[in-house]
Amino acid sequence: MSGIKPTTSERVFDVANIVFLIFLSLMFVIPFLAVLSTSFISAEESMRRGAFVLIPERLDFAAYDVLLNRGKIILNAYQVTIFRVVVGTILNLLFTSMLAYGLARRSLPGRNGLVLFIFLTMIFQGGLIPNYMLMDTLGLKDTLWVLILPSLISAWNLFILRNFFMGLPEELEESAVIDGATPLLILFKIVIPLSMPAMATIGLFYAVHHWNDWFGASIYINDVNKMPVQVIMRNILLTGITQNEAQLEYVRNPPPAATLKSAVIMISTLPILFVYPFLQKYFVKGVMVGSIKG
């Protein structure tokens, strides 16, 4: 154990650093707590204390009752979103890993040309109208697959995963080839198990994208029963109502607009926040390794 005592300047720096970090943490935590608390205030308390409060006098679950128990529209939207996140993320990881593995092989003919072509898609895009016409021609419009297939492979995530694959020792694959392993067997039995930090990182990127995205559904989906929760929540935030109020039962004492909107924010935010702590260590390691390998 070191017997060197910190100097006065080092102590001052440590105290200032702690105070700054506490202040920075409060800047993020207090708004979140304010929204959480506001989602539990009643109409009577809102009239007395204002729209946003930090500590409610009593918990009122009327806003959550309206959103979750007064009809099937919100629960149905959650089912659509969960299907999109789970199925979409699995397909994203499957196709992204297969393409990244192929592009990571230095023996692939025309590899540099393919990488350049994929890189150009990050800069130039076809535009909204051509994409809409394409989805309509392919018969994907107003289906759940239109929320998944157009974003099946992200060029940015592809390059991160490709760089990670390129950092793996080639001797592992050479020994597997000598033992008679096929490229698919090498990918799923050797490469992917060794790349779990990067896979978890890319999977988190894809899952957050699917959970937060509302624009694609608002463009390609007209059936309210196929809309994800983000579109329904966005409509409530903007107008205070859903696109189909008939699916909500009558509420005698409706919650205030600020309370309803705060509850919408919490319902749409908390599920994805609970996933991040379990993937945090893989997330940090995967981003760092994928960024320095090349």
Rank of each mutant, 00 (worst) to 15 (best):
R70W: 11
F159L: 12
G50S: 11
P277Q: 08
F83K: 12
V15I: 08
G126D: 09
E171H: 12
S25A: 14
K5E: 09
I219H: 03
L116M: 15
G286R: 09
V251N: 13
V66M: 08
A207Y: 06
L168F: 04
T137Y: 14
M135E: 11
R106E: 13
I55T: 13
S97L: 06
E174L: 08
F215A: 09
I73V: 13
L248A: 02
G180Y: 06
E171M: 12
L36C: 06
N76F: 03
S154A: 09
N92E: 07
T242A: 14
D65N: 15
R11A: 00
M199L: 15
A207G: 04
N225Q: 13
A246H: 13
E249I: 01
L248T: 04
D14P: 00
V264K: 00
V115F: 04
A176G: 05
P277C: 07
L134I: 11
G102Q: 02
L237N: 03
E249T: 08
T201E: 03
A181C: 12
L138H: 10
N244R: 13
L187Y: 12
M1R: 03
G113T: 11
L134C: 05
I232G: 00
Y276E: 02
F40N: 04
A257F: 07
F205G: 03
F274Y: 03
D179T: 12
M196F: 11
R70D: 12
A16N: 13
I267C: 02
L21E: 09
K293S: 11
I123E: 05
Y220R: 00
I192Y: 07
I267G: 01
F164Y: 15
W145I: 02
V231W: 03
P6K: 15
L94A: 09
I123H: 01
V284H: 09
S195V: 02
L158D: 08
I272F: 12
M266D: 00
R111T: 11
M227G: 05
E249A: 11
L26A: 14
R48C: 03
I148F: 02
M199H: 01
E10G: 04
A51Q: 10
R49M: 10
S42Y: 09
A100P: 00
M166C: 02
M233G: 10
D142W: 12
K293D: 04
L103E: 06
V29I: 15
L26G: 05
N222G: 10
N212G: 10
I186L: 10
S39F: 12
W156M: 08
N244I: 10
L103A: 07
D60K: 02
Q230R: 04
E249S: 06
T7C: 08
R162Q: 15
G216K: 08
F159S: 01
N17R: 15
P31R: 04
I241E: 15
S39L: 14
G286C: 10
S291H: 03
F283I: 08
S97I: 03
N253P: 06
G71W: 15
Y64S: 07
V80M: 02
F95Q: 01
R105I: 04
K5W: 04
L279Q: 01
D60G: 04
D14R: 15
G71K: 15
L149V: 15
F274L: 15
E174D: 14
A104Y: 05
